[in-house]
Simulated assay, not measured.
Amino acid sequence: MNKLKIAIQKSGRLNEDSLKILKDCGISINNGNDQLMAEASDFPMEVLFLRNSDIPQYLKDGVVDAAIVGDNLLVEKGKGIRAVEKLGFSKCRVSIAVPKTFEYTSVKDLAGMQIATSYPNTVNDFLESKGISADLHQISGSVEIAPNIGLADAIVDIVSSGSTLFKNNLKEAEIILKSEAVLAVSPKISEESNAILQKFRFRIQSVLKARNSRYILMNVPNNKIDAVGKILPVLKSLTVMPLAEEGWSSVHSVIDKNTFWEVIDELKAVGAEGILVCPIEKMVL
Rank of each mutant, 00 (worst) to 15 (best):
V84S: 06
V64P: 02
S95R: 02
G80H: 02
Y58R: 11
S95H: 03
A83G: 12
G78S: 07
V84G: 06
K60E: 01
I81G: 09
L74V: 03
P99F: 11
R93M: 09
I55S: 05
G62H: 12
G70A: 05
E103A: 15
L48S: 09
T105V: 02
S95K: 02
E46D: 09
E76I: 07
G62Y: 11
V84F: 05
T101W: 12
A97C: 12
S53H: 10
D54Q: 11
N72H: 15
D71K: 13
A67V: 05
L48P: 05
V47H: 04
K100M: 14
A83V: 10
F49H: 00
D71V: 04
A66N: 08
V47D: 03
Y104D: 14
S90E: 11
L50K: 09
P99S: 10
C92F: 10
T101R: 11
L73D: 06
I96A: 09
K60F: 03
L74F: 05
G78V: 04
T105A: 04
V98F: 12
E85S: 12
K100I: 15
L73S: 08
E85R: 14
V75R: 13
V98L: 14
A83I: 11
E103C: 13
V63C: 02
L74M: 12
F89G: 11
Q57D: 15
V94W: 09
K86N: 10
K79H: 10
G70I: 00
R51I: 09
A67P: 03
V75Q: 11
I68Y: 06
D71H: 13
K60N: 02
M45E: 02
F102D: 14
F102W: 15
S53G: 10
T105G: 01
L74D: 07
G62T: 09
F89C: 10
K79T: 04
Q57F: 10
G70F: 03
R51F: 10
V98W: 12
E76H: 05
S90I: 07
C92H: 08
G78C: 06
G80T: 07
K86I: 02
V47A: 02
I55N: 04
V94D: 09
V94Q: 08
A67R: 01
L74S: 08
A66E: 03
R51C: 08
G80N: 04
V64Y: 01
F49M: 02
V47C: 05
E76K: 01
L59A: 07
R82A: 15
V64F: 02
L48T: 07
A66R: 00
P44E: 01
Y104A: 15
E85D: 10
D61V: 03
I68C: 08
F102E: 13
I68G: 07
V63I: 15
L74N: 04
L48Y: 14
V63N: 00
D71T: 12
K91Y: 00
Q57L: 13
I96V: 15
K91F: 03
F49P: 02
K100V: 14
D54F: 07
S90M: 06
C92Q: 09
L87G: 08
T105L: 01
V64D: 01
P56Y: 06
F49Y: 11
P56M: 07
V69A: 08
E46K: 01
L50H: 05
